[in-house]
Simulated scan of single mutants.
Amino acid sequence: MFAPNAHHEIAKTRYTILQDRALAFCSAFLDLPNNPPDKLLSEHFVTDGPKITEHGPEWANKRLPFLGRTFSGGDECLEYFSLLSDTLEFIPNKQTFPGKEGTIVDDTAFAGSKTARGDVRGMVSVVGRAKFKAVKTGQSWDEQFIYRLSEFDEDGRIGHWEVWADPLSAWVAVGDEKQ
């Protein structure tokens, strides 16, 4: 016989944990003033070697210094946020991130790298839409971008956050690196 309210006490699956954590992470970007980088890292990332990679050509580092490299560890991840916010402003809206129906979750996928935690499985992809603005020029544009979250720990904290965005629009908006 089932215990009273047993139907309300269903254990979360790995899939649900990863999806919920990914959506919570994305939601934090909708209220950046109350979610500064150190809070994002402490609440959503593993403590032992988080990584952030924003993919793009290395030659674009002259104008977009956060692009084309992996920032590893807490201090480097904070550096990523600093370089990013010195260059671009992120202007989200209510439709920036999809709900559960708009996430792709594979709780058994392997990102291709081993961590101190071993062969870490699980990947979540989310497509977002927002306006971005170059800090120095004020030029803005709308774009779609993709977040791929992987290397989660047992609690669903993110080990690696990868971003694919539109570096050409950012490059043009930021303008000449001599500014």
Rank of each mutant, 00 (worst) to 15 (best):
M1Q: 12
P4K: 10
A6F: 15
I10Y: 13
A11Y: 09
T13P: 00
R14W: 09
Q19V: 09
Q19P: 01
D20F: 06
C26E: 01
S27Y: 11
S27Q: 14
F29E: 00
L30T: 05
L32K: 14
P33E: 05
N34A: 12
N34K: 09
N34C: 08
P36I: 01
D38Q: 10
K39D: 02
S42C: 04
H44F: 00
P50H: 00
P50G: 07
P50W: 00
I52R: 04
T53F: 02
E54A: 06
W59G: 03
N61G: 12
R63T: 07
L64G: 04
L67M: 10
G68M: 03
S72D: 11
S72Q: 13
G73M: 08
D75N: 14
E76G: 02
L78N: 03
Y80F: 15
F81E: 08
S82L: 14
S82G: 09
L83W: 03
L83C: 01
S85G: 10
T87W: 04
L88S: 07
E89R: 15
E89V: 14
E89W: 09
F90L: 05
F90S: 04
K94F: 15
T96Y: 05
F97K: 04
E101R: 14
T103C: 15
T103M: 10
T103L: 14
I104D: 02
D106P: 02
T108L: 11
A109H: 12
A109G: 08
A111I: 11
G112Q: 13
S113Q: 10
D119L: 12
D119K: 15
V120T: 15
R121I: 13
G122D: 00
V124A: 05
V124Y: 02
V126D: 07
V126N: 02
V127S: 09
V127A: 04
G128M: 02
G128N: 00
R129G: 10
A130P: 09
F132V: 06
F132M: 00
K133A: 10
T137K: 03
G138Y: 11
S140I: 06
W141M: 03
W141C: 01
E143R: 07
E143Y: 07
S150E: 05
S150T: 10
F152M: 08
E154T: 11
E154L: 11
I158R: 01
I158F: 06
H160N: 04
E162Q: 13
V163N: 01
A165T: 11
A165H: 05
P167M: 03
S169W: 01
W171R: 12
V172Y: 13
V172Q: 13
A173R: 01
A173C: 11
G175D: 06
G175P: 02
D176M: 08
K178D: 10
